[in-house]
C-alpha cells in the first residue's frame, strides 16, 4: 500500500535555513545540509527546499546547497523558489533534485508547466499554490509570498495545472500558515477532490492530530510542515508512530 508522506520544508536564504511567520520576521534556524541529513535519518519521506531570496548571485550558493544535499541524503527532494524558466528547472534537476516546484511563474506563464512536463516528465513538476480565502467564501490564488492577489480561483487553477501536466500540487493555505492551528481542511479537500494527482497539504501544522486529520479527512497524500520539525516540537519518529496508531499507512 502507498504510504502517506511527511515532508519537512526548508526555506533557504543565503545558504541558511530560515523560518518566518506568514513569510515575515524571518529567523535563522540551521545549516540546510545538516538539517536535511537529520530529517533523512529521522524518517522523513521527502524534503522541500525553497530558495526565498532568488537573486542571481545567491542562486549559485543555493544550487551548491542542492548538490550537497543530494550527495548526503537518499530520499527524494523538491526545490522551489525563483523557478521561472526551463533553464532554471534544468539546473536544479541537474544539481540532484527530483522535483521542481513552480509557483508565481506559472501564473504569468502557464506554458512553463506544460513545456516542463513535456521535457522533464510530469513526475518532476510540482505546482505550488498559495491560496487565501476571499470574502465570498472562495479561495483565491495569491503570489509574491501572499502579498499579491491574482483574481484566479484556486480550485480552477489546480484543475488547469493538472491539465497542463503538473504531477503533484502543493496547496498552501496562507490564512493558516505559521499559525499552528491546523491545516486548512476544507481548502485541501476541495483541491484533492478536484484533481487526480497527488496533493500535499501545507500551512498550519501544530500538533500530531493536525497531521492525521488532514491525511484522513482532507484526502491529502502528504503533509508538509516546517517549524514544528525545525524546532523539534514534533519529532518525526513520534509523528509516524502516532499516525500508524491512527491506522494511517506510513513508511517506518
Amino acid at each position: 500500500m502507498l504510504a502517506k508522506r511527511i515532508i519537512p520544508c526548508l526555506d533557504v536564504d543565503k545558504g541558511r535555513v530560515v523560518k518566518g511567520k506568514k513569510f515575515k520576521d524571518i529567523q535563522d534556524v540551521a545549516d540546510p545540509v545538516e538539517l536535511a541529513k537529520r530529517y533523512n535519518d529521522a524518517g522523513a519521506d521527502e524534503l522541500v527546499f525553497y530558495d526565498i531570496t532568488a537573486s542571481n548571485e545567491e542562486r549559485n550558493i543555493f544550487l551548491d546547497v542542492v548538490e550537497k544535499v543530494a550527495r548526503e541524503i537518499s530520499i527524494p527532494f523538491a526545490v522551489g523558489g525563483g523557478i521561472r524558466s526551463i533553464d532554471d528547472i534544468n539546473s536544479v534537476l541537474r544539481s540532484g533534485a527530483e522535483k521542481v516546484s513552480i509557483n508565481s511563474a506559472a501564473i504569468s506563464n502557464p506554458e512553463l508547466i506544460s513545456e516542463a512536463a513535456t521535457k522533464f516528465g510530469s513526475q518532476c513538476i510540482v505546482l505550488s499554490i498559495d491560496a487565501k480565502e476571499t470574502d465570498s467564501g472562495k479561495w483565491e490564488v495569491v503570489i509574491n509570498g501572499g502579498r499579491k492577489y491574482t483574481g484566479i480561483d484556486a480550485i480552477e487553477w489546480a484543475k488547469k495545472g493538472e491539465k497542463l501536466g503538473a504531477g503533484e500540487i502543493v496547496i498552501n493555505a496562507i490564512d493558516t500558515d505559521g499559525e499552528k492551528s491546523g491545516y486548512h481542511l476544507e481548502l485541501t479537500k476541495a483541491i484533492a477532490d478536484a484533481v487526480n494527482i497527488p496533493i500535499v497539504a501545507s500551512g498550519g501544522a501544530g500538533t500530531l492530530e493536525h497531521f492525521s486529520t488532514v491525511l484522513k479527512e482532507a484526502n491529502a497524500d502528504a503533509a508538509l510542515a516546517a517549524s514544528v520539525f525545525h524546532y523539534g516540537e514534533i519529532p518525526i519518529p513520534e509523528l509516524k508512530a502516532y499516525l500508524e496508531k491512527e491506522n494511517i499507512i506510513v513508511r517506518r
Binding site: M1, L2, R5, D45, Q123, G167, E168, D221, R251
Partner: peptide, 13 residues
C-alpha cells in the same frame, strides 16, 4: 488506470 491518482508517487511496499 485512473482508478488511482496518477502519477504513482511515493513510498510503496
Amino acid at each position: 488506470p485512473d482508478i488511482v491518482k496518477v502519477p504513482h508517487m511515493g513510498w510503496n511496499t
